[in-house]
């Protein structure tokens, strides 16, 4: 049979060899990342597991390691998320809807688009400086929970806008046409035909943005979130701290007991991040099923 004789055996063997080598190379590249992550996790778990006790969640920070906990930091992070979430959702999704559904494609909107993409890559400390000038000083919110949440809102806005735009763009044009052809106006089309399909994608982006915010430290240090807070914020203008700042504070102390506390804090933070990313994946899967 010709089929078995036509190929150049030598060449085929060579191609297979190259394919095999590349396969090994890519697997090695992947394993570097995985091994590094595992090493980090194991190291942290060994250090921190003994401190992962109720006290960690129930106690306020203390000068004595055995009494120290991160209650105020966990609650502070939660409060911050609760304030950020609605504000950044409305602003981010609103901007994405405007850019995708309302604004024409002209030089002005292209400029805005470029700006947003650039802002997504600006170092977070810069947002800290902005927050300090705008919210802490100019609007005189002081070093409050509200100032921190607003700073973080601005930090995550570009992420939310870009991912919401992608989700909106993924909705096929034929679906908009179907709605317009039935006599829908623009908002009716956006709200009834486009958003329901885009919502899971939008929410995924919002959750990922929130998980970014929960781990950010630099901008909050910049605007002066405290490192020692032995009370829970009662209203939005109270001072506050968040988990990564508490961890940073513990790590910067000389005593090894505090380093164990920091490791335990990192485990809690990682668990939360994992949970949020898991929720995002669930949403993503649901998304691919319905559309």
């Amino acid at each position: 049979m010709n089929l078995l004789q036509g190929g150049n055996r030598h060449q085929i063997a060579r191609r297979r060899k190259i394919d095999f080598c590349l396969h090994l190379l890519f697997a090695a590249a992947t394993s570097v990342g995985v091994i590094a992550l595992c090493a980090l996790l194991i190291d942290i778990i060994i250090d921190g597991i003994s401190r992962l006790q109720p006290g960690l969640f129930e106690n306020f920070p203390s000068r004595r390691a055995e009494r120290a906990g991160m209650k105020s930091a966990i609650v502070g992070s939660m409060y911050m998320l609760c304030i950020m979430l609605p504000i950044s959702f409305v602003l981010g999704v609103g901007a994405a809807i405007w850019l995708e559904e309302y604004a024409g494609k002209n030089r002005f909107t292209r400029l805005i688009q470029l700006n947003i993409s650039t802002l997504a890559g600006v170092p977070s400390i810069v947002y800290g400086i902005l927050g300090l000038t705008l919210f802490v000083r100019l609007l005189m919110l002081q070093r409050s929970l509200l100032a921190g949440a607003l700073t973080m809102t601005i930090l995550v806005l570009p992420i939310i806008i870009v991912s919401a735009q992608e989700a909106l763009r993924a909705v096929p044009k034929s679906r908009r046409d179907a709605s317009y052809a039935l006599g829908a106006n623009r908002w009716q089309t956006v709200s009834r035909a486009v958003l329901p399909s885009a919502l899971p994608g939008i929410l995924t982006g919002v959750i990922l943005a929130m998980s970014r915010a929960i781990g950010e430290t630099a901008p909050l240090i910049m605007i002066g979130a405290l490192t020692y807070v032995a009370f829970l914020p009662k209203h939005m203008l109270d001072q506050f701290t968040v988990m990564p700042i508490q961890i940073y504070n513990w790590l910067s102390r000389p005593q090894p007991e505090f380093h164990e506390l920091a490791a335990a804090g990192i485990i809690v933070l990682l668990a939360m991040l994992l949970l949020m990313n898991f929720a995002a994946i669930l949403l993503r899967n649901k998304f691919s099923k319905i559309s």
Binding site: P172, S174, A178, S179, Y180, A181, L182, R192, A193, P196
Partner: peptide, 26 residues
């Protein structure tokens, strides 16, 4: 005008909703 002049497209383009909600959309 579009309410009075309906349109059917080349590719069927139902909304990812129930049969009922598709017809009730308009």
């Amino acid at each position: 005008l579009r309410k009075k002049v309906g349109m059917v497209f080349q590719q069927p383009n139902p909304f990812p909703k129930s049969i009922y909600d598709n017809v009730a959309y308009g």
